[in-house]
């Protein structure tokens, strides 16, 4: 479904004689339908840069990102935005809810960002129920705990029934119990047929969902760990 080949992002830094370096260096990565893939790596290893190139948010210096065989970087902004809105569910790093909208509207928001027919409120309430926070629908983000806010972000990422859910450090600042609950939700989502691509800290690797194919990222390069997490949460 999603395939990255030779994906590279070059930056320059330093004073007068700016030095080039590759934040992501020739990465090949595939995510198949219904699969869960976890990319682990330390802070600064290039995993967020990789994720943003994979989702059409950051233009690569070299390489291609193919979705169902089509290079997304050959699309115009309207097409890439539409693709991100319909095929991808994105959970950004940290607090990402819109403070001016209540929980229900935050979840409904992606539905209205592209032209669509139909109703969404009932589906949004069902998604909130799925992640266990239907009772918070009328609350505003400032009134939520970190775990609750992350569940809202997950419900929002799933609202348009994406084919691929991408989560950037989804449990980075959560306690272990809440992390386990979020990971169970990911496992459940994969069970429903949605592919999941997780990017996590090294420390989070141990809590990747059951069955995840794990890649390790170091210095912009990606290496398969050649193992799957078999533990049951």
């Amino acid at each position: 479904m999603l395939a990255a080949t030779g994906l590279t992002k070059e930056y320059r830094r330093g004073g007068g004689r700016r030095v080039a370096f590759n934040a992501v260096d020739g990465v090949d990565l595939t995510v198949a339908k219904g699969e869960i893939v976890s990319v682990v790596g330390r802070s600064g290893s290039g995993k967020s840069t990789l994720l943003n190139m994979l989702t059409g948010l950051l233009r690569p210096t070299a390489g291609a990102v193919l979705f169902d065989g089509q290079d997304i970087w050959g699309w115009r902004d309207a097409e890439i935005s539409r693709w991100r809105n319909t095929k991808i569910g994105y959970m950004p790093q940290g607090q990402s809810l819109l403070a001016n909208l209540n929980v229900l509207d935050n979840v409904r928001l992606p539905f209205f960002l592209a032209r669509r027919d139909g109703e969404i409120t009932a589906k949004a309430l069902a998604r909130l129920a799925q992640v266990g926070i239907a009772h918070l629908a009328a609350n505003f983000p400032a009134e939520l705990s970190g775990g609750e806010a992350r569940r809202v972000a997950l419900a929002r990422a799933l609202i348009n029934a994406p084919e691929l859910l991408i989560a950037d450090e989804p449990t980075g600042d959560l306690d272990l119990a809440t992390t386990n609950e979020i990971m169970k939700l990911f496992a459940q989502i994969v069970g429903d047929g949605t592919a999941v691509l997780l990017v996590t800290h090294e420390a989070e690797a141990v809590i990747s969902p059951t069955g995840a194919r794990i890649y390790e990222m170091t210095g912009g390069k990606l290496a398969g760990r050649d193992k799957k997490v078999m533990r049951t949460h």
Binding site: T55, A78, S81, R82, T86, L98, P110, L113, A114
Partner: peptide, 15 residues
């Protein structure tokens, strides 16, 4: 960040 989130969720630049 608010505008970035909108872009992440699929809002076009024009939106």
């Amino acid at each position: 960040k608010e505008f970035s989130v909108l872009r992440l969720l699929g809002a076009t630049r024009a939106k």
